[in-house]
Design a protein around this nucleic acid. Structure first.
Length: 119
DNA sequence: CTTCTGACTGAAA
DNA sequence: GTTTCAGCCAGAA
């Protein structure tokens, strides 16, 4: 759906959208908070996406949050995982190479929600 | 109610 | 090239 929504209108939907997009991330791919936020129409809401992730940990929804990193491909959210190495281990298990909490060839493994529409 | 923080980003110095 | 500042929205104190 390419319908830009307003956070003030229905923030609940925004969170749900974030979860949907994150779930749609293919294995071995990664994306950034800003990308998801921008895709949802709130490019300034990158922090909200991250906050949504933190909230998702609290919820029952199973979200591959380890596939969501910052613009630099840095594992900024690793600290919020059950284990500090959980995020890196998970990404490495998917074929990614991470050095110093930074994804190597991040741009190659970068995934854009627009690709989901192609499929 | 006011104030601060935050899994971010982009621009400016 | 790095470092610093400001903006953004939502939730918690």
């Amino acid at each position: 759906m390419s319908v830009p929504i307003k956070l003030s209108e229905r923030h609940s939907d925004f969170f749900e959208q974030v979860y949907e997009v994150v779930k749609l991330i293919p294995r071995g791919r990664v994306t950034s908070y800003g990308t998801i936020a921008e895709y949802l129409g709130a490019k300034r809401g990158a922090r909200m996406v991250g906050w949504a992730m933190n909230n998702c940990l609290k919820g029952d929804a199973v979200i591959p949050a380890h596939r969501v990193v910052n613009r630099q491909g840095l594992l900024t959210g690793k600290a919020h995982f059950p284990s500090m190495t959980a995020m890196q281990e998970r990404l490495e298990a998917e074929g990614l190479t991470i050095i110093d909490d930074q994804i190597q060839n991040f741009q190659e493994h970068f995934w854009n929600p627009s690709e989901a529409l192609i499929l």
